[in-house]
Every structure is written in C-alpha cells, then in structure tokens.
Design a protein around this nucleic acid. Structure first.
Lengths: 105, 105
DNA sequence: AACACATACTTCGTGATATGATGTATTATG
DNA sequence: CATAATACATCATATCACGAAGTATGTGTT
C-alpha cells in the first residue's frame, strides 16, 4: 500500500492488534501482516508514541528466557479506535469525491 | 481530519479536482473545502510534486490583470486515480480489521 | 483617499513520522 | 555448528503538511 495512505492507519491498526488481549511487538507484526505490512523499526516507533500518548501501557515479562514487552490498550486507546470510526465517514466522502464520474451526456 | 490520514488523500484529491477540467490553485482549495481542508502552502507543494511526477502539466495565463496557473491532468494522473480505487479496497480490509468486534459469548 | 478583504502565487523553516540499516541476545532447527 | 526465527533498540534519512510571511492586484466600504 502507498506509504502515505498507511500513515493514518498504522497507529490505529496497532491499537486494534492489542484491543482483544495484550500482545507484544513481534506478534503484532505477524498479526497485522495480512492487512498491513510494517517493519520492526516502524512498529517500535509507533508503540513508543502510543505509550507516550497514553493509548497503551507496557509491562515486561520473561518468556522462555527471552524478554517480552506486553502492550495493553487503555481507555484512551479504545476511544482512539472509536474516533477512527467517525473519521472513516469523512474518508468515504473524500473517496466518493475522488472517484466521482462526470456526466457525459 | 487527522493529519496523518489526510496524507494519503491529498495528492489524489488535487488530481480529482482537475480531472474534469483545468483549474488553478485558489479554486482548487475552494472546491476541495467541503471534503478536505488544505492551506495554500500545502497545495502549492502538492502541485509542484505532482508536476515533477508527471501527473499534471501547467500553463500560465493572465486573468483580469492577475496571473493564474492552470493545471491540467495527464494520463499518468488519471491512472493514479484509478490506482487509488484499488488501494481503497485494501483500506476497507484494514478498516474492517480495526473495527471488528470480538465474540463475547 | 484610506482601509479592509478577497484573489493568487511563492518561499522558508519546522515538526511529525515511516523506514532501512545496524546492533544485541536467545532459542530452535537442520 | 551454522542458519533461521524470535525479540527488542537506536540512528540517520527522506518525505511531507503546514504555519508564517511575503508580493501583487482587484473589489467593496466609509
């Protein structure tokens, strides 16, 4: 997908990936892969931003010797997803304007 | 609308604004206003980028003493709009993932 | 005449951000 | 024992939207 189009979706996709249960970086990337591709550097940047913005909280846990950081969505994060629903309506209106055909007789 | 969400739409909106007839900067802003808000500095940046990318051509003309630069969409520009239609399908799939509800019994 | 406002395009600096490259460390697989 | 997969971290870079400020002309108001 076009890099610019992705920009508005990434944050909310990451939130959606943890909204039904805590998850961690590597898993989030794999879960999102069917819908949207993102690299590790991109994801960790996003996770940091979402944490700073109070959209999620982090907890470190050891899993089979390896460190894992589990991300948990907050109320603000859930509200962000709801907000996206409203924004989608605007998106549709823009989409329809873009693909609108002129009447040619 | 969210600034990041706009990013993927702006280029294609500007193309759509000239696809049914040549237009100029100030008019494009007004025509797009009901759908998406953009400032002059943003628009002229976009127009320059689209010109460089071969999506449109420019022609200067005087209109009542004032300079106007009319923008004309190219075949590549039209193809960009068609491409957006395909991207939209991906967008919908992302949207559905984001708003999907878990089955809670 | 003086002033505000709309039209019309231009340039500059800044902040946000996606991404590749690179690094560290452990476990699993052949 | 080498390779891949897992897992997180940091840095430099390029793209880009946008506010601010500037130049210039026409229109409307008092």
């Amino acid at each position: 997908m076009d890099a610019q189009l992705k920009r508005g979706l990434l944050d909310v996709c990451v939130l959606a990936a943890i909204k039904d249960g805590d998850s961690y970086g590597y898993k989030i990337i794999k879960d999102l892969r069917p819908y949207i591709e993102l690299s590790e550097s991109t994801l960790y940047t996003i996770l940091k931003r979402l944490e700073t913005g109070g959209m999620l909280t982090v907890r470190s846990a050891e899993h089979e010797g390896r460190l894992r950081k589990y991300y948990h969505i907050t109320d603000a994060g859930m509200r962000r997803i709801e907000e996206f629903r409203s924004e989608w309506a605007e998106m549709i209106s823009v989409y329809q304007f873009v693909i609108k055909e002129e009447h040619n007789g």
